[in-house]
């Protein structure tokens, strides 16, 4: 066999291996979904969704966890979106290339890599203890807000960066001030990109567990929270709790709750993909 034939065989060998690798990831995903659905799907009914938690697996539900999650998400959105977008706008449109913006940039890159559990420790001390908010919904939302801030800032910047310079110039050329240009031209043009980032940030917040455990979110909450200062639990913590119980019934419950959780996660990601593709089609400059 000459070297060219050997090379061909190597090439083919790698190609086959690579295809196996590529599908392995997808197969694991498929198996995961199958395992979850086969165990949990039959457990989902209206009672499961509207029942309070219980010591008996068969009568336990996710009612309070769902409400807790919605509370947390709504507050997180209200807190994190304006701050994240504002910071993204500042860094992309106002920040000159100097040590200050450079420093903020390094800082954000760093924050994006800080493990989420560390945010939990920050939330526990800063919001829970120093500001005296305890283990309330507000503490949870503030903590998650800080956690998703880097995601929002980075995606806002990327979206704004994609707006052509010529549009800004047209606006400045007509005598618009900086903020008029940003609010009337730049932000509407970047809307799709910004929304995509925001939705992915929500998706991230939905899936978080560790920081909320650390700030002291409860496992057992027998009432629906009525205000931001109430104690709470969320779907992920409920799942964590059920997974770690020895009785088989709770594992089924966990699988069922995971199906609901994945529905939210995939819905968010689907919406993001949808917005991205629609927006890409609509505004070709």
């Amino acid at each position: 066999m000459n070297s060219s034939q050997i090379n061909k065989i190597k090439n083919l060998g790698f190609k086959s291996f690579a295809i196996v690798c590529t599908f392995l990831g997808l197969v694991v995903l498929a198996v995961l979904l199958y395992v979850v659905f086969s165990q949990g799907l039959s457990r989902i009914d209206w009672d499961f969704i509207t029942s309070l938690p219980s010591r008996r697996a068969s009568s336990a539900g996710i009612y309070t966890a769902l409400f807790g999650m919605v509370w947390i998400l709504v507050l997180t959105v209200i807190i994190a979106f304006p701050i994240g977008m504002a910071a993204g706008i500042y860094l992309q449109e106002y920040g000159k290339k100097n040590w200050f913006t450079n420093f903020i940039e390094v800082n954000i890159a760093n924050l994006a890599g800080v493990p989420s559990i560390i945010y939990g420790i920050l939330g526990l001390e800063l919001f829970g203890r120093v500001l005296g908010l305890g283990n309330s919904i507000l503490t949870g939302a503030l903590t998650l807000s800080l956690l998703i801030l880097p995601i929002i800032i980075v995606s806002t910047r990327e979206a704004i960066k994609a707006v052509p310079k010529s549009l800004r110039e047209a606006s400045y050329g007509l005598g618009a001030t900086k903020w008029q240009t940003i609010s009337n031209v730049v932000l509407p043009s970047a809307f799709g990109g910004i929304m995509t980032g925001l939705i992915l940030a929500i998706s991230r917040a939905i899936g978080e567990t560790a920081p909320l455990i650390v700030i002291g979110a409860l496992v057992y909450v027998p009432f629906v929270p009525e205000g931001p200062m109430d104690e709470f639990t969320v779907l992920t913590i409920q799942i964590f709790n059920w997974v770690t119980r020895p009785q088989a019934g709770f594992v089924t419950n966990a699988a069922a709750a995971i199906i609901i959780l994945l529905m939210f996660t995939f819905m968010m990601n689907g919406i993001a993909v949808l917005i991205r593709s629609r927006y890409n089609k609509k505004t070709k400059f």
Partner: peptide, 19 residues
């Protein structure tokens, strides 16, 4: 900004706003 309002400008590539 006031000064630019008195001078119109047309650019190399057409750059209408996405409105």
């Amino acid at each position: 900004d006031e000064h630019r309002k008195k001078i119109g400008m047309v650019f190399q590539k057409p750059n209408p706003f996405p409105k």
